Computed example of a mutant assay.
Amino acid sequence: MTLTQKFAYLFSSTLGLSILIYLLRGFGIVTFLPGSILLGLIILAITTFFIYSVLITKR
């Protein structure tokens, strides 16, 4: 597995987890998690997207 594939997997995982937690908090199922955890996941997804896009253009 190349580094580009690892960042693609990490980006899709963090984005999917962020969306899932956001939806579950909206429905009132996961209300005990603070908003900083959701914000951290969103920032991690954005960061991994930028790293992934830089790695793609390096080819």
Rank of each mutant, 00 (worst) to 15 (best):
L17W: 08
F49L: 13
T57K: 15
L41E: 04
F11Y: 08
G26R: 15
A45R: 08
F11D: 00
M1P: 04
R59C: 06
G16S: 12
I56L: 11
L55E: 08
R59W: 08
I46W: 01
T14V: 07
L24R: 04
F27E: 07
I29R: 13
I46N: 02
Y52D: 01
L10I: 11
F50S: 10
A8S: 06
I42M: 07
S36V: 11
I56P: 00
Y52V: 06
S36Y: 12
L10K: 03
G28H: 06
T48E: 05
I56F: 03
T2M: 01
T47I: 12
L20T: 13
Q5R: 09
S18W: 09
I19F: 05
L24E: 10
R25C: 03
I29A: 14
I42G: 01
K6I: 13
I37P: 03
T31W: 01
L33G: 00
L38R: 03
G35T: 14
F49A: 13
L39W: 07
L24W: 06
G28R: 05
Y9W: 12
T31S: 14
K6V: 09
F27C: 04
L41R: 02
P34A: 11
T57W: 15
P34I: 03
I51N: 00
I46A: 13
L10Y: 09
F7M: 02
S53P: 01
